[in-house]
Amino acid sequence: MSYQTVKIVKGSGGWGDGLVLTPTDERHVVLSVTGGGVHPVAAKIAELTGAEAIDGFNTHVPDEEVMAVVINCGGTARIGVYPKKRLPTIDIYPGSPTGPLAQFITPDIFVSDVGIKQISLVDEATAAAAASAAAQTQSKEGGASDQSSTTTATATQERPKTVSQTQAEKGGLMSWVVRFGNFIGYVINTLLSSGRQALQIILQTVLPFMAYVGLLIGIVNYTGISQVLANSVTPLASNPLGLLLLSFIVAIPVLSPILGPGAAIAQVVGVLMGTQIGAGALPVQYALPTLFAIDGQVGCDFIPVGLSLGEAKPETVSVGVSAVLFTRMVTSPIAVAIAYLASFLL
């Protein structure tokens, strides 16, 4: 039988660098440890590669014969068991390393949120390169699997006894219950991994900025600089024409790229203006035009990067930078004017 190579990439909510798999005579099994028979993802991999898909719940397969493992776990156990044995692991659910075995879940051996669409056949040229890499991992695995073979046997034999598994095969109401349970599992796992993602951005970006803003407001308030600033900015910000002027100034092509980075200046001015509005020094109606007046420079520092993210050609970038910078001088005051009119609805 001739074997083919497949490439498996992570899904939209997934994790991992992706896997390139080729079955060999020793390692020719795609183990589906998903419950309810062989999972379509395992079947697809087997179909493309010429390997054999086996339901890991019913059948015990020695680790030495396993090419890859398909799991549906975002929690603690299975997600770590197979990566710990250095077996390439494909998780149906979106998930990133968690649980007690998190340190073994590495991007070269684990990929998550995988569906049928994430699996593709690799052509001959890249397959050759992958084969040598696969050979390396297998030699590494050889040593590891000897040590873990005893634990493996107990681990795999325990699993077929799961109640949900035996029930799923019987069909009828219980199989529906199992399917419902799997669906709930998917929902919960997505939410958990989203929570982790949210916490990450809060730790890395939001909290440091809050500390910085907190310190800044603290200093400005405590030393009385806020009073001085208020006295100087308020005349500009307390009438519509002043706001128009402010929006024009920040949009001047020489200034706007300097004022832009990280929206740091817009944020600080926003906080200061907010303090003034809160204290009653500026009317509430001015909040809306102010929001646009302090933001006329938004993104002007980022134009070449933003355009190249959109895969723009060099000519487009060179034309686009001036186009954006010049139109801002007009559109920025227009924005304030519209916001001023809209603020009467407030």
Partner: peptide, 21 residues
């Protein structure tokens, strides 16, 4: 989320002065 204070800064003042708005 990293640049929330443009909005949050100004709106905090409004929250304080006129929460209903």
């Amino acid at each position: 989320a990293g640049e929330i204070f443009v909005w949050a800064g100004v709106s905090a003042g409004v929250m304080q002065a006129a929460p209903d708005k």
